[in-house]
Amino acid sequence: MSGHTVGMDHVPLAQALAARLRSQGTPEHIARLFAQVPRHRFLPDTVWGEDRTRYDRAADPAEWMRVAYTDQALTTQRDDGAPGGMGVPTSSSSAPSVMARMLAAAGIESAHRVLEIGTGTGYNAALLSQLLGSGSVATVEIDPELAGAARAALSAAGFHPDVRTGDGERTGGLPSYDRLIATCTVSEVPAAWLRHMRGRGRIVTPWAPTPGLPGGVLAVLDATRNHAQGRFEGGLSFMWARGQRRPGRSAPGPEAVADSTEQVPGDPREPWLDGERALLLSLLMPGWSYGLRMGEDATDPCVWLASTTCSSWARLHADGRVEQGGTRALFEEADRAWRIWEGWNRPAVSDFGLTVDPDRQTQTVWVHGPRHSLWSVRG
């Protein structure tokens, strides 16, 4: 992690970032944290922006410092730190507006203890420590190298929360807490997250219905030791928890032979090329994953759908062709789900929610309140 950049004053940049968050509606007590805690102190010397632009502190310290105080997620590790990889982002410093959104959703009060899952750079733990005092903050990081770097950066900045190296899906050995904030996406809310709740608490976590989906929601769950329930507060895409980032099902290969092929009007890929519509479909329709794949000699990618409960699949092409294999007609399932959604007067993502019952080992997605369950999975 970097220290001070010689000859550069970060304070105006941090103040401008905090002002931007205020203008977006961030509560004052949270916005001011971003002026008080220097983000650049928690960044490595090389980061990548959201457009994959590389910023190197040694090559251009002014630009590196400037980007540190922009409202964007900065990739801080690729390929789990292994050299010679494909450059897949595996850790980041989240966009400040997203961090502020999660801190506000947590409803943190002065007497609360907070557990963070996914320390990353340590910046969010520093914000929490500034808000509550280091003694009320614990944070868990699965990557030993990241945990060590975060611990050092926090100490150098004057913060001393309890930084643990371990699997954040298991919270054994940690003290009880009132709030849990996860900085990674899960599809199964770990039962361990509930078991250490001190009375009635709250879990704030990115969540997606199927492992490996490209998007998700922010789940804000009021929780006790044996129950968690709450609504989704809009879409949110985070890196997956390492224990859950396996894809729900891989794409059907080009050798997969369709059981049926039909020609439909228009572009059947359309819902899946719209992030919001694809997210709604993932909430309405259980047990499937999707993605894009470029076929041989194709000029446009096809959208593939794959069941996570059986071997069924579909390929949707720009020219209107729909190929399907297996017993589930995924394309028709999605069409029915979309018509039902329209019949319900098009509920927004925030009208959906989740109930977690660790005793029954179930997670239930509902709309317009817990009595209107859509589907449940065991997990």
Results as ranks from 00 to 15, higher is better:
345 N>W: 10
330 L>F: 08
309 T>C: 00
342 E>P: 01
306 A>C: 05
342 E>D: 12
337 A>Y: 04
311 S>D: 13
323 E>G: 03
307 S>Q: 02
277 R>W: 04
319 D>G: 01
343 G>L: 05
331 F>I: 02
298 A>W: 13
281 L>I: 13
293 R>I: 13
293 R>T: 15
329 A>V: 06
285 M>Q: 15
270 E>W: 07
292 L>H: 07
265 P>E: 07
314 A>T: 03
282 S>M: 07
261 T>R: 15
353 G>I: 06
259 D>Q: 10
307 S>E: 01
311 S>Y: 00
311 S>Q: 08
288 W>Q: 01
300 D>I: 00
259 D>M: 08
258 A>W: 03
314 A>C: 08
341 W>A: 09
333 E>Q: 14
301 P>V: 11
279 L>R: 15
318 A>F: 12
336 R>Y: 10
341 W>E: 09
275 G>V: 13
350 S>P: 02
282 S>K: 10
351 D>Y: 03
304 W>P: 03
331 F>K: 08
296 E>I: 04
350 S>N: 12
348 A>G: 09
280 L>E: 09
290 Y>W: 15
328 R>C: 13
305 L>E: 01
273 L>T: 11
334 A>W: 05
258 A>K: 03
298 A>L: 04
272 W>Y: 13
345 N>H: 14
323 E>N: 02
289 S>E: 00
331 F>D: 08
299 T>P: 00
348 A>K: 14
325 G>H: 05
